[in-house]
């Protein structure tokens, strides 16, 4: 290769790398607080933190885009979420530290909500003797942590996308939570939200995360949310964003309809 060609190739490679990096730059939302349980002298072995994603207020331009998309799909505009699964790729990274001097077990569960509903598994238990509590949207896997050891993990982007789809199915799709969570929908054309089928990228995105940490001894959970924002609507100041500049999510708790008599 001639030196001149080499120089041009280097320039092009640099510009391509820079462009590719800009296209998917992630933003990190650090945990507002770590969750520490099992502190000596206390009997608290479960802790929960709720995080709302700091999304900018909907602009007139975004509203018009959403209305046009809703018209295309044949649903009222208020039935198409402002933040949809095609807008964000979200993952949650975590680290558990065992602060006790003996091996123990911990579990992390993640529930949450979209802009319409949030999910509480216990709401599906009508008769505690008969009904089994459905699983959380993600996690609840027992993890053994060595004495004074630590363990890292991540709820991947595809898992959180699937959880968004599951929540849409459970709430507006009226599907049993066991069925929704045992089915992987990533290859499906969409989710049925009567009377239409929403394409997967138009499903309501989880914008609220309830992170539940349980351990049988003194442990601490540290975590952070990583978001790749394809639409540029995440507030750049994260959780430090002024309240007046972000959407105040107010989903309703989803209560399943009573069984038919």
């Amino acid at each position: 290769m001639r030196p001149q060609s080499l120089a041009v190739a280097t320039v092009l490679a640099g510009l391509t790398a820079a462009g590719a990096a800009c296209a998917t730059d992630p933003q990190y939302i650090p945990a507002p607080a770590s969750i520490e349980v099992g502190i000596e002298g206390s009997d608290v072995f479960t802790g929960t933190v709720t995080i709302d994603l700091p999304v900018q207020l909907e602009t007139m331009e975004h509203l018009m885009e959403r209305e046009a998309r809703a018209l295309e799909l044949g649903i009222p505009a208020d039935q198409l979420a402002y933040v949809r699964t095609g807008d964000f790729d979200v993952s949650i990274e975590w680290t558990i530290k065992n602060l006790a001097g003996s091996e123990g077990e911990a579990r992390i569960s993640v529930n949450g909500g979209n802009q319409y509903w949030y999910y509480v598994p216990t709401e599906f238990v009508i008769d505690p003797d008969e009904d089994e509590e459905p699983p959380p949207l993600m996690g609840d896997v027992p993890l053994r942590i060595a004495a004074s050891g630590s363990r890292d993990g991540v709820f991947r982007e595809d898992q959180i996308r699937e959880a968004s789809i599951d929540l849409e199915q459970i709430t507006r799709g009226m599907i049993n939570p066991f069925a929704a969570m045992l089915t992987v929908n990533e290859e499906d054309p969409g989710v049925t939200v009567p009377p239409v089928m929403l394409p997967l990228d138009d499903v309501s995105q989880l914008v609220r995360f309830d992170i539940i940490f349980e351990a049988d001894r003194h442990m601490v959970l540290e975590y952070g949310i990583r978001i790749r924002d394809h639409r540029g609507i995440l507030h750049e100041e994260g959780l430090a964003a002024p309240a007046g500049e972000i959407v105040a999510w107010m989903p309703a708790m989803f209560v399943p309809p009573p069984p038919p008599p």
Partner: peptide, 17 residues
Amino acid sequence: ISSNVLGKVMVLDPGER
């Protein structure tokens, strides 16, 4: 800077890029 990952160690302030 392409992301705020260094915000965790206070190299960046919120929203600073």
